[in-house]
Computed example of a mutant assay.
Amino acid sequence: MPPIVRIYKKSIVTALFLVIVLGTGGFVFRGELRNLLDFKKITEQAGLPKETAIDETQNLEEVISREENISSEIAADDSSKDSEQEVLGAATQKKPLPAEINLKVPFTPQAPHANWELPYGEACEEASALMVHYFFNKKTFTKESADMEIKKLVDFQTKKYGFYKDSTADETARFIKDYWKYKKVRVLPASIDAIKQELATGRPVIIPAAGRLLGNPNFRHPGPLYHMLVVKGYTKDGKFITNDPGTRNGANYVYDQKALMNAIHDWNGGDVNNGKKVIIVVDKNK
């Protein structure tokens, strides 16, 4: 066999060997990377505060209600300085925010069966709204129930509004009210304190976000242009606890508070990075 042919064959064998090795190594590496991400998630979750069920938040709502009533009394009572000072004293003794809280919001990814084709790839708004609704109604998800509920929400919006993709905060609040008949769904300016105040009274918070600013390593590169997720708690050390429907690893996913605040932006016609910083808060019907 001529030397050139022999060298050529040897090169082909070497190339095939490298392809097999690198392919196998890449597969192993991806598996190891996935395991590392899962381990990081499990480690972070181990230190999270105990989850608070909807029934356990009732006393928090009662505290806020009493404070609001006291404030109303102050405004209405002009008859006596002494009585006004008594009421004022009671009103200023507000219960401070808990050091940490973690509401027991059930989780579903927006693609319950890991099928990221439409409508699931665009269903973060629906999945986020569903998680809040299920929390208020003490329900849990199966893959089948989540899949059915997401499709029903998509169908409802398509028929009623003519679209379901890339819903703004106001549009998301609208379909929550129209579909489930919630009487009060608020879109508020976003701040760390505003989010904590709502969580402390037993209300999960839905946030619109520039998905690529979230820096979630579980997202498919480069991440969603626009995203929605649920904030369900906060920790003592400056983290927000979320249910992020954009990944199967989204239950109790922890974001740094400043990083999450930086990513909060409304749709803004597709110019998401310049969208308003707002949050969506659903008040449970009495």
Rank of each mutant, 00 (worst) to 15 (best):
E56F: 00
N137Q: 09
V105F: 04
K159M: 08
R203L: 08
T247Q: 12
A173Q: 07
H265T: 12
I195W: 05
Y226M: 02
L213K: 13
K232P: 03
C124F: 04
K40A: 15
D77H: 11
S191L: 09
T43C: 02
G23M: 01
K181M: 02
E61F: 01
V87H: 08
L214G: 06
G269M: 14
V63G: 00
G275L: 11
I12A: 00
I192E: 15
N218W: 07
A15P: 00
A129S: 12
T235C: 09
G47Y: 09
V19G: 03
H133G: 03
V278K: 06
T172M: 15
S191D: 10
C124S: 10
G250Q: 06
I7K: 05
A76V: 04
L48C: 09
I264T: 12
A259Q: 14
A200N: 14
S72Q: 11
A263L: 12
E62Q: 12
I70A: 13
S65R: 10
I7D: 10
L22Q: 09
E125K: 00
A200L: 14
F17H: 01
E122P: 01
Y134K: 13
I264P: 08
S128P: 04
N252S: 12
S145P: 00
G23N: 08
K184S: 13
P106W: 12
G238K: 06
L188E: 15
L18Q: 05
L33C: 04
F27Q: 03
D193V: 05
W180F: 05
S11N: 07
L118N: 13
R220I: 14
E73S: 04
Q85I: 14
G31W: 08
P217K: 01
L199C: 11
R66C: 02
T242D: 06
M148T: 13
Q93N: 14
N137T: 15
N285K: 01
Q110N: 10
N102T: 08
K10S: 10
G26P: 04
T92K: 15
V231F: 01
R30I: 10
E62H: 04
S80R: 03
E62P: 00
K284T: 09
T57K: 02
N268S: 10
A251C: 04
V230M: 03
E44G: 00
V272L: 02
K81T: 12
N268K: 09
I54N: 02
L214P: 07
R186N: 15
E149H: 07
S83V: 10
